[in-house]
């Protein structure tokens, strides 16, 4: 039920947007993405745009998944494993926080 599908916003007027979904024009409510503009990719759930998709972040994620975690694995191999868990949530190279 939490399925959300990406589509390209092609028209925008107030809260009323139109997306192109596989060549079909579908109306979408954009009140939760007021900063979205025509040409943006958005995630749609139950008739609402719930977020703009950031293509640059998507590209970076894939790069990170492919490369940097590998580097993280190598680095971890050099470091002695910690005893017990770290008290603070740490971030791994794949993390964006």
């Amino acid at each position: 039920m939490c399925l959300a599908v990406p589509a390209k916003l092609i028209e925008q007027d107030g809260h009323h947007g139109v997306v192109d979904m596989h060549g079909n024009r579908l109306p979408v409510n954009t009140m939760m993405t007021p900063d979205a503009q025509s040409g943006d990719w958005i995630l749609i759930h139950a008739g609402f745009a719930i977020e703009r998709l950031d293509p640059e972040e998507a590209r970076k994620t894939w790069a990170l998944i492919a490369d940097v975690q590998q580097a993280g694995g190598e680095r971890a191999a050099q470091e002695p494993p910690q005893q017990g868990r770290s008290s603070e949530p740490s971030t791994t190279p794949g993390g964006m926080l």
Partner: peptide, 13 residues
């Protein structure tokens, strides 16, 4: 690696 972490692997959204 004996770690716990919060990782966001879906930052495009």
């Amino acid at each position: 690696n004996n770690k716990t972490a919060l990782v966001n692997q879906y930052p495009e959204a």
